[in-house]
C-alpha cells in the first residue's frame, strides 16, 4: 500500500543492523504509526548477508518488503547494497556505507568483488554515500557506524528530531547514549548537507 513506508536495512552479520532497525521502528511508533519489522536469525547470521525490514504507516499488514516495495535502502556494505537494490521502488533512496567486506568466495579468489558499486547504484537511484566507519571513529567509536547511517536516514524520514532523541533513549543503553547521540547527529548533519540529486519523495 502506498501509504506505507518501507525501509530495508542490509549488510553483514555483526554490523549492528538489528539495532538500527529497532531505532527506526521505535521512532515510527513514537511518531504515531503502526509498525512491523522482520529479521532473520540463526545460520544466516554467521558472517552471511543480513537484512532487516521496517514498514510503517497508518496500518501495516505484511512485515516484509517485496521487490520494488522499499522507499529506502540503508546499506551497511557496498556489495549488500547492490544485492538488495531490487527491493527499492523506482525513485527510492539509497544510503550507502562506503565499506567493503569481502565475502569468502572473494577472499578465496573464486569470485570478484564488483568494482563500480557506487556508480552502478548512483546511475539508477538517488544515492547518499557515507564513510560511516570514519565518521563513527570521529564520534569516538567505530561501533557507532550503524547509528551514523541511521542518523542520515532520519533526515529523510518525516519524524521530528525530538522523536529520534526519545527513540535513542528508549533503545540505547544509558552508558552508550551520549556516544550514539553524537553519531546520530553526525549522520543527520551529513544527510542535511548532501541532498541527493534526484527529486525526493
Amino acid at each position: 500500500m502506498r501509504d506505507v513506508t518501507g525501509i530495508l536495512i542490509a549488510g553483514v552479520g555483526g554490523q549492528g543492523i538489528i539495532l538500527a532497525g529497532k531505532l527506526a521502528a521505535q521512532a515510527a511508533i513514537l511518531g504515531g504509526m503502526d509498525v512491523k519489522t522482520s529479521e532473520i536469525h540463526g545460520m544466516a547470521q554467521r558472517g552471511g548477508s543480513v537484512v532487516t525490514h521496517v514498514r510503517f504507516g497508518p496500518k501495516v499488514f505484511a512485515p516484509v518488503i517485496d521487490s520494488g516495495g522499499a522507499d529506502f535502502l540503508l546499506a551497511f556494505e557496498k556489495l549488500e547494497g547492490l544485492r538488495n537494490l531490487k527491493f527499492l521502488r523506482p525513485g527510492g533512496t539509497v544510503i550507502l556505507n562506503d565499506q567493503v567486506i569481502e565475502p569468502l568466495p572473494v577472499l578465496l579468489g573464486k569470485a570478484t568483488y564488483p568494482a563500480d558499486v557506487v556508480e552502478q547504484i548512483g546511475a539508477r537511484f538517488p544515492l547518499l554515500v557515507i564513510n560511516a566507519l570514519a565518521e563513527a571513529e570521529g564520534c569516538g567509536d567505530t561501533r557507532t557506524a550503524n547509528v551514523v547511517l541511521l542518523g542520515a536516514l532520519a533526515h529523510r524520514l518525516p519524524f521530528p528530531r525530538s522523536v529520534w532523541e526519545e527513540a535513542l533513549r528508549a533503545v540505547v543503553p544509558a552508558r552508550f547514549l551520549e556516544l550514539n547521540r553524537r553519531a546520530f547527529a553526525r549522520g543527520f548533519e551529513i544527510a542535511a548537507s548532501k541532498q541527493p540529486r534526484l527529486r525526493q519523495k
Binding site: 553483514v12 552479520g13 545460520m43 544466516a44 547470521q45 554467521r46 558472517g47 552471511g48 548477508s49 517485496d66 521487490s67 520494488g68 516495495g69 556489495l79 549488500e80 547492490l82 544485492r83 537494490l85 531490487k86 565475502p103 569468502l104 568466495p105 572473494v106 569470485a111 570478484t112 568483488y113 564488483p114
Partner: peptide
C-alpha cells in the same frame, strides 16, 4: 502485479565459521 526483477549475478555471501 509487480514482476520479479532478475537477480544480478553477484558474489554470494554464505555464512562462514567465525
Amino acid at each position: 502485479f509487480p514482476t520479479e526483477p532478475e537477480d544480478q549475478p553477484l558474489p554470494l555471501r554464505p555464512p562462514v565459521l567465525c
